[in-house]
Write a protein that binds this DNA or RNA. Structure first.
Lengths: 332, 332
DNA sequence: TGAGGCTGCGAAAGCGGTTTCGCGCTGGGG
DNA sequence: CCCCAGCGCGAAACCGCTTTCGCAGCCTCA
């Protein structure tokens, strides 16, 4: 049962025998008030479980304690975790989220969503992309509040952007394999056009070069499915390439590669070590059944960081890369 | 660039040469106003792109246009989609979401989250569970606004609850196999204690009974991982059971079963048809690489329905089961 | 012709806080 | 002893919209 009627600040003031303004200052830590009075008011507020009406407060202060969230295909596999991380972080910061899912890639006028966000006097805006396409045109200039982009760059260089560190993922995986003593590392990945693929490849090459190694055979592109990974692995082995490790574009490919190894009697990780990307097993399985070492892009964390950034006092323009983490499994 | 200063209703009123109250009535469709005046005011508001200050409006009306969302492990695999569906639906209904992730399973006092939700004068509350545990104790009585439970029952029978129809999922899968002419259908699933498992099993049995069939062999329990499914399938075949179809507790198990079929030279779906649950491939893959027929529990939709329910004028207490959908794949 | 009802509009009181600013009181220094 | 600075407090304005209710004017009908 919620309390009969909500307690107002005026009730507290009356009981404490002070004015409204004094009571307000007492609770909000204003100056020009004695410690005794402050303590007395606070004690009474505490005792009555006083909760100031957030609506009145927002109205008076002109701050809504609401962050607008503009998403693009938020229900998709990768954008989903970013959005979840964001709304959870916003909740922890006592901010409501006003989420609108839109097509962020078309040139647009001021949409109804943007108008609604403005009318609601949001305190900041978080734009969550789909991880692939650049948000264009940037929506920043429609707002006078901080705007942060998560999981997608915008077409405006001064925007604050949070992205997974795909190059770092390539480096991390490769470094791990090198540390495990591997010297003939192959690369099987997804669609060649993907920017993520290109960045991971660059990271892999950088790390190989730093170690004075050559990639084992050319990078094999395909789809992101395990069948594609299996096919590529079979072709790779059939070509007679000598390999002792494979860096895979994602975990599905990795599992496909694992299947081929098993079928051909190659021991994992003794003969061939395998590393994937996405930590897909971590999402769905308990750790005891993990089969793959993988690089986790930390999408939840990405969402949280970007959300916190919107409210941060010191924001720095440009791209912020979220470091991936290596998740060890039995495949390396 | 956001407009210099926001237009107020008083500006509109001044330009239209009417009072504030008249302008308000004109825009909000109040009665006691002539059509000419209404049209004139509206025309001016339109022309100036007037957006009433939502903060002031909320304050005056005492409605926040914010729905509280209490989640439990929102970042988990299954609760995530429910939460995403919910916040997207709320956005479409122009409602902000105030999300707090908490442990909903412990007996609790009024937590800070609940206090904050009350202070914010939320218009309704959505409780998102983890799909397994019953929310206990029910939080309904802490609020004077509508409370809806999604993806978890509460311990209070009058609460409004939205759940996936696990029994329906078992029935749907089984009916599909029967329609495909299968008569010796086995069941391989996850942990025996799970309520979802029990319900799906019940659905399967109901459909078998209705068709005058017997289940092929006893239900085999295990974990939710593909290895477990593969082991169970091997054991099943080794036991000499004659089967022409398998209903699998989830898609991982299904994929494990598929692997065994392939290894043993069983043709799918000619010799053995396989159906899973969760539509895991749909989440992560494009349809061209789908391998499994599956039953989708429609968790996004569950979240959307529950969210819409919070704001619905006519709410009916009790459990609402969200019908699953069959997603056809090459395995049946 | 006068009473009464109906229509269209506006003045004003709210919603519940925050914040400015003025005033009385006290104490210390000249 | 008087003056003034500074401290503590409260009156009142303000945030922008909604809603009640009274009033003026007009129409209708007896």
């Amino acid at each position: 049962m919620p309390s009969d009627r909500n307690i107002r600040l005026s009730d507290i003031a009356a009981i404490a025998g002070v004015s409204l303004s004094t009571a307000s200052k007492a609770l909000n830590g204003g100056d020009r008030i004695s410690e005794e009075t402050r303590a007395r008011v606070r004690e009474i507020a505490e005792r009555l479980d006083f909760q100031p009406n957030a609506l009145a407060r927002s109205f008076a202060l002109g701050r809504s304690r609401t962050i607008g969230v503009l998403t693009y295909r938020a229900a998709s596999t990768f954008a989903g975790p970013v959005l979840i991380g964001a709304v959870l972080q916003l909740g922890e910061l006592q901010q409501a989220s006003l989420v609108f899912d839109e097509d962020l890639l078309v040139p647009r006028e001021i949409t109804n969503s943007i108008r609604e966000l403005q009318a609601r006097r949001i305190d900041g805006l978080l734009v969550v992309g789909d991880g692939h396409e650049r948000v264009s045109p940037s929506v920043t200039h429609h707002f006078s509040v901080p705007v942060t982009y998560a999981f997608a760059a915008s077409d405006h260089l001064d925007d604050v952007v949070y992205l997974p560190d795909n190059e770092g993922a390539g480096r991390r995986a490769t470094r791990h394999l090198i540390e495990r003593g591997r010297t003939r590392i192959a690369h099987i990945t997804g669609t060649a056009g993907s920017i993520a693929v290109q960045l991971r490849e660059r990271g892999m090459r950088a790390e190989l070069t730093a170690a004075g190694l050559q990639q084992a055979g050319p990078t094999r592109f395909g789809t992101w499915a395990s069948d594609s990974g299996a096919d590529a692995m079979s072709a790779l082995l059939d070509s007679g390439a000598e390999i002792d490790a494979v860096f895979c574009g994602n975990d599905h490919i990795g599992l496909g590669v694992l299947g081929v190894c098993q079928a051909r009697g190659l021991r994992v990780p003794e003969d061939v070590a395998v590393v994937g990307v996405d930590n897909w097993e971590g999402v769905v399985l308990d750790q005891s059944t993990r089969r793959l070492t993988t690089v986790d892009l930390e999408l939840h964390r990405l969402g949280r960081l970007a959300a916190a950034d919107v409210l941060a006092p010191d924001r720095t323009p440009g791209e912020h890369l979220v470091p991936p983490t290596l998740v060890l499994g039995p495949s390396s």
